Structure formats: structure tokens, C-alpha cells
Simulated assay, not measured.
Amino acid sequence: MSTTRTATPADNEPFDFDLNVVEAESDLRPFRFRWASAKDPHRRLTMAHMEGLDIWPLAAAADGGDASAMLGVFQTALGEDWEAFRSTPLPQYKMQALFKAYQKHCGQKPGESQASSSS
């Protein structure tokens, strides 16, 4: 079995696609919501827009099924706010409502895959 190796092209050689210039087709405005805690009854949390999330942790979380995938989206989108969000008990019905509102904000229909196009 042989493999074909090609030499690494020089920086000035042409390429087929420049991923560096790709930009989002929609406004990546963050999603903000209120989720009070005993310590902070007016706490507001911010989630990055779904289309701007790093795909690698989302793909890893998706290996665990739908619930893991949803939690992976929340953890990635909340970033530094994840621990504050996670520290307050959250009923499942509220998590589902929050996820639906987040999907709507990001231009996706509830149940639509993270990787699918919103166009």
C-alpha cells in the first residue's frame, strides 16, 4: 500500500479556498437572559450567538446524545458565565424553554440541528 505525499506548497502558491475570509451571514448578536439566584436576584447571563460557537467542543458533546449536545451548546455559548449558570438548580422544563428561545434568537427552528443552515 502506498500513499501519495505532496510537498508543502509555498506561501505564494495558489489555494482552493481561503477560510480566513469567510464571515457570518447573519448578525451574531449575543443572547441575554435573566436567571435569578439567591445571591443575585437580578442576575443576567449572556450566551454567544450559536453560529459563532467553536464547533469542536460541540461535536465532542454531541457524541453523548441530545442532552449532552444541548449542554455542550450552553457551556460553550455561556463561556465564563457557565459556572454561575450551572450553580443554580434548573428544572428541565426551564432548560427546554431557554433552549427554544435561544434557537429562535439565533434564527433556527426548535429541533433544528446546530450544523444545519438557517437559510
Rank of each mutant, 00 (worst) to 15 (best):
L45G: 01
L45W: 00
A48T: 11
H49L: 04
H49N: 04
M50L: 15
M50K: 11
M50S: 09
M50D: 03
E51M: 10
E51W: 06
E51H: 14
G52A: 07
G52T: 01
L53M: 03
L53P: 01
D54Y: 11
D54V: 09
D54A: 14
I55T: 07
W56L: 06
W56F: 03
P57G: 02
L58R: 04
L58G: 02
A59E: 12
A60W: 09
A60N: 13
A60D: 15
A61F: 02
A61W: 04
A62T: 00
A62R: 12
D63Q: 12
G64C: 00
G64R: 03
G64D: 05
G65R: 01
D66I: 13
D66H: 07
A67G: 02
A67S: 10
S68F: 00
S68K: 11
L71Y: 00
L71I: 12
L71F: 04
V73L: 14
V73I: 15
F74A: 12
Q75Y: 01
Q75S: 14
Q75L: 11
T76V: 00
T76P: 00
A77E: 04
L78C: 09
L78Y: 07
G79M: 05
G79T: 03
G79V: 05
E80A: 15
E80K: 14
D81Y: 10
D81T: 10
D81E: 12
D81W: 10
D81H: 15
W82F: 15
W82D: 11
E83I: 13
E83H: 12
E83Y: 09
A84F: 01
A84L: 07
A84D: 10
